[in-house]
C-alpha cells in the first residue's frame, strides 16, 4: 500500500485517561489532510506518536513507509514537525534558528531554500531579531521555515493557526496550498471548523475518537436532515422558543442565524407561521446546506 501515513488501530492511554481510541486512517502521498477537533480531542497525542516522540499503548503506524515504533531515525529524518506550542530557541536570532535546524539535519539553508523562499522573504527583514521577540504571526512563519528546511516528505502541523486572526489564518492556508505543489504530504490539525474546507480530506475527531473521515464536501453531503437558517428580531428569545417546538431536533446559533434541524421534512412557511404566532418580528426562514460544524455537532 502506497500511503504516506498509515495508522492502524492506534490506542493510547495516559493512566486512566484514554486519549486515543482505535484510530485508523491513511493519508496519500502529496495529500493535504486535516484533523479537525477541539482541544483535548487527542490531536497532539496522535502527532506525537506519528513523529516518534511517544510510543502508542497499542496499534501500529507507518510514516513514509517506516514503522513509528522501530524506525525512529528514518522517520525523524523524513518529517517536519511544527508543535502546537512555539518550540524554537527564543534567544537565538531568526537566522540562527534556521541555521541550527539546517545543521542538525545535516543540510544547508541553500539546499532547502526553494521550499521556504516565499515564507522566508516575509521574515527576512527581522533575521537579526531574537525569535522570542517576534510577533505571533512571525513566530509561526519562522517555525514553518524551520520545519521545512530539510525538505521533509511529510509535514506535521499541530494547530498552526490557533489564536491567529481570521485574515492571517487565511494567508497561512494559502501558503499550505502552495507547499502542496512541491509534493509534500501535509497532516494539519485545527480547532477551527471553517478551515476544514481548505483540506482535501478531513477526519473529525472528538474525545479520542474519529467521528467521520471524508472529503469536506462528502462530510457536508452526509448531513441528510432538514436544515434551516432562521432569524428574527429577538434572537435569544427565538432560540428559547424553537427549543420548545416539538418538531425541533436541534437548534443552535450560527452567526447571525440560528440553524434549526427538524425531525421531519417541513416547509419554511410552517416554521414562519409558528414564529409569527409566538409574536416574533422580522422573521427570516430559509433552507440551507450544512456546514462542517453542523455535522460535527450532530455527530458529537
Amino acid at each position: 500500500m502506497n500511503s504516506s501515513i498509515k495508522i492502524s488501530n492506534i490506542n493510547h492511554s495516559f493512566g486512566e485517561v484514554q486519549a486515543l481510541k482505535d484510530i485508523s486512517f491513511e493519508v496519500a502521498p502529496g495529500e493535504l489532510f486535516g484533523l479537525i477537533g477541539p482541544d483535548g480531542a487527542g490531536k497532539s497525542t496522535l502527532f506525537r506518536i506519528l513523529t516518534t516522540l511517544l510510543v502508542p499503548s497499542s496499534g501500529n503506524a507507518t510514516v513514509a513507509g517506516w514503522d513509528v515504533k522501530k524506525d525512529l531515525k528514518q522517520i525523524r529524518r523524513r518529517v517536519g514537525y511544527m508543535p502546537g506550542r512555539f518550540s524554537l530557541y527564543q534567544d537565538l536570532t531568526v537566522e540562527e534558528n534556521l541555521q541550527f535546524f539546517a545543521t542538525i539535519f545535516g543540510t544547508t539553508i541553500e539546499e532547502g531554500y526553494h521550499l521556504i523562499e516565499e515564507i522566508w522573504v516575509q521574515i527576512e527583514p527581522f533575521r537579526k531579531r531574537r525569535a522570542g521577540k517576534l510577533s505571533g504571526g512571525m513566530k509561526q512563519k519562522l517555525a514553518l521555515c524551520c520545519a521545512l528546511i530539510h525538505q521533509p516528505e511529510v509535514l506535521f502541523l499541530d494547530e498552526p493557526t490557533t489564536g491567529v486572526d481570521a485574515v492571517s489564518r487565511r494567508e497561512f492556508w494559502d501558503m499550505l496550498q502552495r507547499l502542496k505543489e512541491h509534493g509534500i504530504t501535509i497532516l494539519v490539525s485545527t480547532p477551527y471548523m471553517d478551515e476544514a474546507m481548505r483540506c482535501e480530506r478531513i477526519a473529525l475527531i472528538q474525545a479520542g475518537e474519529i467521528l467521520s473521515i471524508d472529503t469536506p464536501q462528502g462530510i457536508i453531503g452526509s448531513y441528510k436532515k432538514p436544515l434551516f437558517a432562521v432569524r428574527s428580531k429577538n434572537f435569544y428569545q427565538l432560540l428559547q422558543d424553537l427549543r420548545g417546538y416539538e418538531g425541533t431536533e436541534r437548534v443552535e446559533p450560527f452567526g447571525e442565524y440560528l440553524h434549526l434541524t427538524t425531525k421531519a421534512q417541513v416547509d419554511s412557511e410552517v416554521i414562519e407561521t409558528l414564529m409569527n404566532n409566538q409574536g416574533h418580528q422580522e422573521i427570516v426562514v430559509k433552507p440551507v446546506e450544512a456546514t462542517i460544524e453542523d455535522v460535527f455537532l450532530d455527530l458529537m
Binding site: A41, P191, L297
Partner: peptide
C-alpha cells in the same frame, strides 16, 4: 478570547 479551542457545542 474566551472560546479558543473549545468544541462547537461548548462554544455555543
Amino acid at each position: 478570547e474566551p472560546t479558543g479551542g473549545v468544541d462547537p457545542a461548548t462554544r455555543r
